[in-house]
Structures are given as C-alpha cells and as structure tokens.
Design a protein around this nucleic acid. Structure first.
Lengths: 144, 144
DNA sequence: TTATATGCAAACTATTTGCAATGGT
DNA sequence: ACCATTGCAAATAGTTTGCATATAA
C-alpha cells in the first residue's frame, strides 16, 4: 500500500469513519493537493484514474468530512461560484491571483486582533478567514 | 421626491448610469440597509412595495453596479449559498454571528500587513476581505 | 448480517441568458 | 429615433436528495 494511501486510511480510522475506496480517494487528493480543490476538480482527477466515482458521492463526502472537521469548505467570492475544499493541517489564509486563479497559503496576522475584538464587541469569536486578492508576479506583465 | 430617492438619483447620474425606476429602487434598498442583502431579499422587499420588478433585473443590476464599483458582491462562506451585496461607503469587514446570522461591520486591521505581504510575495495586492465568525452577546446564553 | 455508503437519476436553488417589448435620453 | 434596459421564459451551474443496490464492519 502506498504511503499516502496508508496515511489516509489511518486518518479515517482514527476518526471512526467507515473506510470506503471512494472516501480514501477523495481524501488522498485533498491531502496531496497543495491548494484547495473544488468538487468538480476532484471528480475530474478521480475519473481520470479509472474510478467511476460519482459527483454526488464526492459532494456527500466533502460535506461529511467538513462536518467532522477533517476539511474546510469555503467560497472564493470572486468570479467563481463553486465551493472549494482543503484538508486542514493548520490555520491559514489565502492569497488569490485574480488573473490566473492561483491560490497561495498565508499565515495568520489576526491573532492579537481577535482578542481585542472580542473584548470590544462582546462577541465570542469562533473563527475567521481572510482572502487577499492581487496579481501574482507572472500576471503583472503589462501591468493592468 | 424623497431625500434618499434624490440621493440615489444623484449617485447614478454622477456615474453616468442610465436612470431607471428599477435601478433606483435596488440602489435605494442597498443604501438604506444597514447590512448586506441578497438578491432574493432585495426582491422580496421591492415586491412588497408594489413594484413588479423581476429577479433577473435585480441580478443584472447588481452585477452592473458591482462592475462600476458602486457596490460589493460577496459570499458568506458558511451555511448560505447565496451572494450578498452592499453599498460601498468605505473599506470594511464583517463580523457574523453563526447562530442568528447578524452581520456587524468592522474596520480594517490589515493596512500594514498588506504592504509587508506585497514585498514578501511579489504580488501586487489589489484588495482583501476578512470575515470573522462568532456568537453575538445575545446568542451566548446557554454557552454552546 | 445489518447499517451505512454508493450509484443513478431526478430535483432543487441561485443565477444567467436570449429575445421581443419598453423606456430613457 | 436609437440604443440600453426590462420582462418573461427558458437554460445553466452547482449542489442535494430519494431510492434501490452494494459494501464495510
């Protein structure tokens, strides 16, 4: 069994999640991927690898993994309407190139701000996300 | 002519945007509203006020206003799938109660961070948004 | 063996589009 | 008068659901 397949299996097991080949495939792609993927992207990848997995199965499992806190589900706000999904390794944010769509992960600049905000508003802060939009170095030629 | 209707008209005029009753109605609601609205919410409000405006007209104009920089279009990421729209008065962010859905506007804590980020990544930063999720004081009773 | 997950097809929601009619300038 | 905008209906995209079958434990 390949290294990543093994790792994926362990993760599912440790969470008490029933192991199916489809779940392993989906989670593997999210773990391998360096950037968030959409349901359709995952489907495209898995279909190429023979597996006759259905889109509905992918959606169901993405929802399921999210509810178990294994992955994070979010929108990109601009242009696209699909949701994106990523394996949660650590709290971070995204820098998105509005021209080519490339997504880069960033650390979190809000640690102090959050506690100050909680104090000021009375809110009990649970989470947050930041998306930063710009042009990546490659897309800056011609300087729009 | 009512004060706000007048103001709306002036905004459209100053932007060289053709004035129609539908555009005035849509923009008025966004200006009056203290929080972002979805297309369906705007539609519901305007239908109640007699106007037989169509959802498609609302969508078309929301897109149009966004492209002209009059309003901002964004997702809420959690739970809901619709987009939300707000009149742009100044750059700000949102604090969202995950229990009752209340949306509060916040200032921007990222001014310095952005320039540091541009330097570090080579990206030309254009914009960003932050969403912070938590429980508002009212929803904290029972402390989940 | 039994509950859970999947395949499949159909439904649903939010949004977009084509086209003829209407309305602003 | 002319072109932009609207109404209307139909299309589309992304996602969800119901039900029979297959599969993990």
């Amino acid at each position: 069994m390949s290294e990543i397949k093994n790792q994926t299996k362990k993760i599912l097991q440790s969470q008490g999640i029933r192991i199916t080949s489809q779940r392993q495939l989906i989670l593997q792609e999210l773990i391998k991927s360096l950037k968030p993927l959409s349901a359709a992207e995952i489907h495209r990848i898995l279909i190429k690898q023979d597996s006759g997995i259905r889109l509905s199965t992918i959606y169901r499992n993405l929802k399921f993994f999210s509810s178990r806190g294994l992955i994070r589900e979010f929108n990109l706000d601009r242009s696209r309407k699909e949701k994106f999904y990523e394996f949660i390794e650590s709290h971070h944010h995204h820098l998105i190139c509005t021209s080519c769509g490339e997504i880069k992960c960033l650390g979190c600049p809000l640690e102090d701000y959050e506690s100050e905000l909680a104090e000021r508003t009375g809110y009990q802060i649970k989470d947050h996300n930041i998306k930063i939009y710009g042009l990546c170095p490659e897309c800056q030629t011609g300087d729009i």
